[in-house]
Simulated assay, not measured.
Amino acid sequence: MKITAGLGSIDEYERFVRAGADEFFCGYVPFFWAEKYGTVMPLNRREVLCYNVQLGAYSELEILSRMVEKYKKPVHLTFNSLYYLPEQYPEIASIIERCMKLGFQSYIIADPALLVYLKKIGIFCEIHLSGETGEVNSQMVKAFQRFPLKRVIFHRKNTFADMQSVIAEQRANERKNGISPEMGMEFEAFVLNEMCQFTGAFCNSLHCDEMGYLCRVPYWLGTVHEKDSVPENMKRLQEETWEKETDPSAYDEDGYLCGESGCGLCALYQLKKAGITHLKLVGRGNYTEHMEKDIRNLRKALDILDAAEDERDFQCTIKRTLFPNGCSGQCYYPM
Rank of each mutant, 00 (worst) to 15 (best):
Gly27Lys: 05
Tyr28Ile: 08
Tyr28Asp: 03
Val29Gln: 08
Val29Thr: 14
Pro30His: 05
Phe31Ser: 14
Phe31Arg: 15
Phe32Gln: 11
Trp33Asp: 01
Trp33His: 05
Tyr37Asp: 01
Gly38Tyr: 10
Val40Ser: 14
Val40Asp: 12
Pro42Gly: 06
Leu43His: 03
Leu43Trp: 02
Asn44Val: 01
Asn44Ser: 11
Glu47Lys: 10
Glu47Phe: 12
Val48Arg: 15
Leu49Gln: 14
Leu49Ser: 14
Cys50Leu: 13
Cys50Val: 13
Cys50Met: 13
Asn52Ile: 01
Asn52Thr: 11
Gln54Trp: 08
Gln54Phe: 10
Leu55Glu: 10
Leu55Phe: 15
Ala57Ile: 10
Glu60Gln: 15
Leu61His: 07
Glu62Ile: 13
Arg66Met: 08
Met67Ile: 01
Val68Asp: 03
Glu69Met: 07
Lys70Gly: 00
Val75Ile: 12
Val75His: 05
Val75Cys: 07
His76Phe: 08
His76Gln: 12
Leu77Val: 10
Leu77Glu: 00
Thr78Ile: 08
Phe79Trp: 01
Asn80Phe: 05
Asn80Gly: 12
Ser81Asn: 11
Tyr83Phe: 13
Tyr84Trp: 06
Tyr84Asp: 05
Pro86Gln: 08
Pro86Gly: 10
Glu87Tyr: 07
Glu87His: 13
Tyr89Gly: 06
Pro90Phe: 12
Pro90Gln: 09
Glu91Asn: 05
Ser94Asn: 15
Ser94Ile: 03
Ile95Ala: 04
Cys99Val: 08
Met100His: 09
Leu102Ile: 07
Gly103Leu: 06
Phe104Gln: 02
Phe104Lys: 03
Gln105Leu: 11
Gln105Pro: 00
Gln105Met: 12
Gln105Trp: 05
Ile108Pro: 00
Ile109Trp: 02
Ala110Tyr: 00
Ala110Pro: 04
Asp111Thr: 04
Pro112Ala: 07
Pro112Phe: 04
Leu115Val: 05
Val116Arg: 11
Val116Trp: 12
Leu118His: 06
Ile121Glu: 09
Ile123Met: 10
Cys125Ser: 10
Glu126Lys: 13
Glu126Phe: 03
Glu126Ala: 09
Ile127Leu: 04
His128Lys: 04
His128Thr: 00
Ser130His: 05
Gly134Thr: 07
Gly134Asn: 03
Glu135Ser: 13
Glu135Ile: 14
Glu135Arg: 10
Val136Ser: 08
Gln139Trp: 09
Met140Thr: 12
Val141Cys: 11
Lys142Ser: 14
Ala143His: 13
Gln145Ala: 11
Phe147Ala: 07
Lys150Phe: 13
